[in-house]
C-alpha cells in the first residue's frame, strides 16, 4: 500500500546567483526511510531546508496532498514535519529538559502526551536522562545528536527530516544512532535521511536518491543502489 506522504515536484532553490537545486522531483512513501546521498554541495541540505520552510523555493512540495509553498517554518512544523538540522541545532543555553520541552511547543493542549513522550525519550536515551538538568552545550557530540533526535520525537511529527545524524561521530556511536533511527521508523514514523555515510544510510533505508550538483541522478530501492556500480564507485569507495 504505497501511500505518498510527501511529494516533491520540480523543486529549485537558489541563493543569489548560485543554484543549489535544479528541478528535483520525487516522492516519499509513508512509513519508509528514504536516504538522500551525494557529495558535499550537492544540495541535500537545501532540499531539507526547502521542505521545512527555511528557504524559499520554486516548484511544488505537497505534504499529505497540500502544497506547503510559502508557509512559515513554524506552521510547517504544526502540520507534522520535523527537521533535525545539520549540526544538530541544539540550544546550548538551555538545559536538556528545556530543549525537549521546547520541542513540544505546539502541544500545549496535550500535557499528558508530552509527559509520556518525554519519558519515552529518556528511556530511549538513558544518557540524556542522567543529564536533564545540564546545559546542553556541555553535552558531547553524540549526546547532542541524541538530544536532537529526542526533540524530534517530542514534536511528534509524522515525517522526520534527518540531516547527517552520523556527522562527526565515531563509527561506534554512528552505529548506535542508526539503530535508534531504525527503531523510530519501526514505530511508524516516516524518515528522510541525508547522509555522507552512504553505505550505512542505504543499508538502513527502503528507498534511496542520489544527488549531484543540485540534480537527482539516480533513484531506486536502497538495496538496488547498494549494488549499483556507479554508486559503489563514487559514494561507497569500492
Amino acid at each position: 500500500m504505497a501511500n505518498v506522504l510527501l511529494s516533491i515536484k520540480n523543486l529549485s532553490v537558489s541563493y543569489g546567483n548560485i543554484k543549489a537545486l535544479r528541478g528535483i522531483s520525487f516522492d516519499i512513501i509513508e512509513g519508509q526511510i528514504t536516504a538522500l546521498i551525494g557529495a558535499n554541495g550537492a544540495g541535500k541540505s537545501s532540499l531539507l531546508r526547502a521542505v521545512s520552510g527555511m528557504v524559499k523555493f520554486d516548484g511544488e512540495i505537497n505534504y499529505r496532498g497540500r502544497n506547503i509553498k510559502g508557509m512559515a517554518a513554524h506552521k510547517i512544523v504544526s502540520m507534522g514535519i520535523t527537521h533535525v538540522p545539520e549540526g544538530r541545532g541544539i540550544f546550548g543555553s538551555l538545559t536538556v529538559r528545556e530543549n525537549l520541552t521546547l520541542a513540544a511547543w505546539l502541544r500545549r493542549n496535550d500535557p499528558e502526551g508530552v509527559k509520556r513522550d518525554y519519558e519515552h525519550v529518556i528511556e530511549l536515551f538513558p544518557r540524556l536522562g542522567e543529564r536533564v538538568g545540564q546545559l546542553s552545550a556541555t553535552l558531547s557530540g553524540g549526546e547532542q545528536q541524541m538530544l536532537a533526535i529526542g526533540r524530534a520525537l517530542m514534536s511528534k511529527g509524522d515525517l522526520i527530516l534527518l540531516d547527517e545524524p552520523s556527522m562527526g561521530l565515531s563509527p561506534v556511536l554512528a552505529d548506535e544512532i542508526f539503530g535508534i533511527i531504525d527503531e523510530i521508523s519501526k514505530a511508524g514514523v516516516t524518515i528522510l535521511l541525508v547522509e555522507q555515510n552512504a553505505f550505512m544510510a542505504l543499508q538502513l533505508s527502503h528507498h534511496g536518491c542520489v544527488m549531484e550538483n543540485g540534480e537527482l541522478t539516480l533513484e531506486g530501492a536502497a538495496a538496488e543502489l547498494l549494488d549499483d556500480p556507479r554508486v559503489r564507485q563514487a559514494y561507497l569507495g569500492v
Partner: peptide, 11 residues
C-alpha cells in the same frame, strides 16, 4: 542561541 533553528520547534 540560534534564531534559525527555533522555527523548527514550531515557535
Amino acid at each position: 542561541w540560534d534564531i534559525k533553528t527555533l522555527p523548527l520547534m514550531g515557535v
